[in-house]
Amino acid sequence: MEYILNKTPIRTTNNFKVNDLKLDLDIIKTKFKDFKTKNVNINTRIENNFESKIGLLEDKYLFVDVFNNNEVGYLEYDFDNDYLTSLINVNASNLIIIFKGDNAFLNTKIVINKAKSVSIVNLTSKDSKSFISIENNTNSIVNFIELGGKIKVSNYYSVINEENSINTFNSIYLGKEDEVLDLNYYIGFNNKNTKGSINVEGVLLDNAHKSFKGTIDFYEGSKGSSGDELENVVLLSDKVISRSLPMLLCHEEDVSGTHAVSKGKIDEEKLFYLMSRGLSEKESKIMIILSNFNKILDNIPDINLKNEIINEISKRL
């Protein structure tokens, strides 16, 4: 069945195919299993009528309420060859959500109602298809590591409603072989003196096909607010398709908004320097890419998980 997913908040010309993602999907549904947890309490139940900003509707889904206090809490779903549709309702302090598994099908919405920091790590692989929609109703920092499998569709949506609030979304993505990535991230500014930023670092290789849509939207009345948006992507193959649509929408005079997109091949001077120190070309490239990613990875509050992510990125590169 064909789905049209992850629509941009404002459409632009159709001939560059960036407004939405058309996908043919066969969804094979199985029974939901339990999340693995550490330092969190969860309540789960099956509910009806799943919907998210991505637009992949389903009948039944697993509703997960997550609570914890100050410690770093963990919620993990490991599902080789399996299926999950869920809504994760976050009422935690520091939470790490991990998805793992080969050939998995993930359709999830993460609603952040209370948190200081939430890190979402998608380590699914091979033929996995993931559709991760994040709605942030707090001032928390959200880190999203999108390594995923064959199809990875993600959405971040946050409107800053409280005066003097800050909203930060950091993301890393990796696309290889013939993987498809569609990333649609939005921050709306709806009060005075708010700050928001979307920081995205990525790497594409082989025949990967990526669309990044980022939106900074200043509403009327958002005086004194500032918003930044950055996408920096390294292209490692001449067969990749890299699309970007970094939008800046403004309905208020007294704001400061910037966006920047930078795309290109790996810095040859850095590569030459590292290779002159005895590293192979491949090792040098991995090192440069990881150094780009490091400022986001540093926000992950678990050194072991950070190392696991680094190993996984190195393996995939």
């Binding site: 398709i241 890299s242 970007s244 970094p246 997109v261 795309k263 091949k265």
Partner: peptide, 21 residues
């Protein structure tokens, strides 16, 4: 509003876009 879209089909293009309001 600034609505810039960019599609790159090779690996040695240098592209930068900056916008300020």
């Amino acid at each position: 509003d600034t609505i810039p879209s960019c599609t790159i089909l090779n690996d040695d293009t240098i592209f930068s876009h900056e916008a300020k309001i």
